[in-house]
Amino acid sequence: MSTARENLPEIGELLHDTAADRVGEFRGATAGQWTLRAPGSGGEWEAEPGSVAPAGTYEHVRAEAAKLNARRRRLP
């Protein structure tokens, strides 16, 4: 028997929230919503599981750019 927990992405997996056109790392699931965190910034949001897809190459590049930009903003 399969459970809903078995169908969840791995924690930290990079996903594309197509409804918000945002890329985020999977943080967990609560009350039917998935929590995603923007790479490099820590800003979290809730997403409908049906609107979330695995990140493709383009989304991976966007995420890396976001991490580098966040790191650069922290430098003096």
Rank of each mutant, 00 (worst) to 15 (best):
E44G: 03
A29R: 12
D17F: 08
S41Y: 03
L15F: 00
H16N: 09
R73D: 11
R37F: 06
A66G: 05
W45M: 01
A55E: 11
K67D: 04
I11D: 02
S2G: 00
T30L: 14
A65W: 13
A63H: 04
A29N: 03
E44Y: 00
A20Q: 14
H60K: 13
E10R: 14
G28N: 13
E48T: 11
E48R: 09
T18L: 06
E10C: 06
G40L: 00
L14A: 01
R22K: 15
A63K: 07
M1K: 09
A31P: 04
G12D: 12
L8H: 08
D17P: 02
E46P: 02
S41F: 05
M1T: 08
V23A: 00
P76F: 03
P49K: 13
A63V: 03
R5Q: 13
T18K: 07
Q33C: 00
A29L: 03
G28T: 08
G28A: 10
T57M: 05
V61L: 08
P49I: 15
L68A: 04
G24H: 01
L75M: 10
L14E: 00
W45Y: 14
V61H: 06
T3I: 09
E10Y: 05
G40Q: 01
L15V: 05
A55S: 08
G32S: 09
S2T: 11
P49V: 15
W34C: 05
A38P: 04
I11K: 14
K67G: 04
V23W: 08
D21N: 15
A66R: 02
E46T: 11
A38W: 01
S41R: 09
V61A: 14
A70M: 02
E25M: 12
G24D: 01
G12L: 04
E59P: 00
E64A: 15
G50W: 04
A47P: 02
P54M: 05
W45Q: 10
L36I: 10
G12N: 10
R71V: 00
